[in-house]
């Protein structure tokens, strides 16, 4: 069932003719060419496809297009503004919080929503909040450090 779906993507309005049951992940990656959102499992189990919808981290492989109607979506491509990295991105770079980098967009966006809810998380809160995002390279330690660094910086 094709439907017209309007939403805001990385601060710009988008209007798409698209089947309502298609997963947001594939629409982002193929129809919209935003390949920063990664496919890792397609079943909601890994978090590489994480995007932000209305300030909440969600797994785009599990989100049908019908659900994004009138919503505000932020993907990794929309995080840096005016050519400047977001503090989380900068902290991931500075802390070497990545190896292969495939989990990185999902990690950063999941952390982004975590910090929206809790601007000064403890280490235990970061671990709990990041728990279901998988990283096979074992960058976990530095990811936690990067989130702590960014949180501090964002609090000013």
């Amino acid at each position: 069932m094709v439907d017209t779906i309007e939403f805001v993507l990385n601060r710009k309005p988008v209007r798409l003719q698209v089947e309502k049951d298609r997963a947001l992940l594939w629409v982002l990656r193929t129809d919209l060419g935003l390949t920063g959102t990664k496919f890792g499992c397609g079943t909601g189990a890994c978090g590489t496809c994480t995007v932000i919808i209305n300030q909440e981290a969600v797994r785009s492989c599990q989100i049908p297009m019908a659900d994004v109607k009138s919503k505000e979506i932020l993907t990794i491509e929309g995080l840096a503004m005016n050519g400047r990295l977001h503090p989380l991105q900068q902290a991931f770079v500075d802390n070497n919080a990545l190896q292969c980098g495939f989990c990185t967009p999902g990690m950063i966006l999941n952390a982004y929503s975590l910090l929206l809810k809790n601007s000064a998380p403890t280490e235990a809160e970061i671990i709990a909040g990041m728990e279901e995002n998988l990283c096979r390279c074992g960058s976990h330690i530095r990811i936690v450090q990067a989130i702590q660094t960014a949180a501090k910086q964002m609090r000013g």
């Binding site: 390949t35 496919f39 990794i76 991931f92 990545l98 967009p105």
Partner: peptide
């Protein structure tokens, strides 16, 4: 700092599946 890091944190690093 890793030369590939900025590409990877901005989603611009290309993996095979990103080739279109």
């Amino acid at each position: 700092l890793r030369t590939d890091a900025v590409l990877k944190v901005t989603g611009t690093a290309k993996y095979a599946g990103d080739i279109s």
